[in-house]
Design a protein around this nucleic acid. Structure first.
Ligand SMILES: [Mn+2]
Ligand SMILES: [Mn+2]
Ligand SMILES: [Zn+2]
Ligand SMILES: [Zn+2]
Lengths: 141, 141
DNA sequence: TTCAAAAGTTGGAATCGTTCTAAACAGTCG
DNA sequence: CGACTGTTTAGAACGATTCCAACTTTTGAA
């Protein structure tokens, strides 16, 4: 976390208490929170926090390449502080999002009809299924 | 197209002129249109068409499993009348969406830490790149 | 054919996530 | 102490999508 702070300071980002709280909340967070998740959590320590600040900070972080925006949920954006390339598993019952740290690129050859019309440089896989939590619930029902 | 119409009639869907026009527009359409694309195109023949009808019809089709909703574009939903499982290529410059009809499932083994917490049943890959059109533009600039 | 129930259409209002705005604030430097 | 710069805030604005209530069409039974 200290490293993080240094990094942001070096990049010329002013570190306000609100931003620090947001950074702290995101640091190591693997839950893929939405702006509202962040807002609600950070508001506890900073009751005057506004949504604008959350969105502003997120945008700054995304521009700096420190946070990724996930287009996984049609209803709202999710944010991922882990910017190493990776994929996701989504529980179709509860929406829980998990990480998949495997690079499948070598195995994803594209047919010629595609490479003819696109120069592909990256990929992202969404796996869909049911999480153990939801599975357990279903059985006990 | 006639087959289509029969299919919908059998499923107990009322076939109004607006719906027929929407179905016709979607039939064989590989452009992954948005609700607005559909609205604009169909409005030419049915000037009184409302967005509500477009959304209602799309929802009915999605519920029937005849159309897929794509969560690829953070700004708006795209719709795909091709419901056979397949993947997509997205041009990061112009947003153009292409199809990739390859089943990679066999090659996408998941690490045990994932299978321990999720029962995965399907996957969808987004490939990102630049389409030839945009590439040409860039070079001539 | 006729007719009424059920389902669909419409324009506009409402909703919801996200972005924008203008005014108040805070830290920095002279 | 100002002036400067970037930040925070509340609330307005926005754009995609959903909802609503009144009206119209489709459909199938009589
Ligand atoms: Mn992740
Ligand atoms: Mn497609
Ligand atoms: Zn779940
Ligand atoms: Zn392009």
């Amino acid at each position: 976390m200290q490293k993080q702070i240094e990094k942001y300071r070096k990049k010329g980002m002013k570190l306000t208490p609100q931003r620090l709280a947001i950074l702290e909340y995101l640091d190591g967070n693997t839950a893929h929170p939405t702006a509202e998740d962040i807002y609600r959590a950070v508001k506890k320590k900073h009751p005057t926090l506004s949504f604008a600040t959350v969105y502003n900070t997120l945008q700054a972080l995304v521009n700096m390449g420190e946070v990724m925006e996930l287009t996984i949920d049609p209803e709202r954006k999710h944010f991922d502080p882990d910017t190493t390339p990776h994929h996701h598993v989504i529980c179709t019952r509860c929406g829980r999002i998990g990480d998949v740290f495997v690079d499948y690129s070598r195995r994803l050859e594209l047919p010629e009809e595609v490479t003819r019309s696109f120069t592909v440089t990256s990929n992202h896989i969404d796996f869909y299924g049911v999480c153990k939590n939801c599975e357990r619930k279903r059985r006990t029902k």
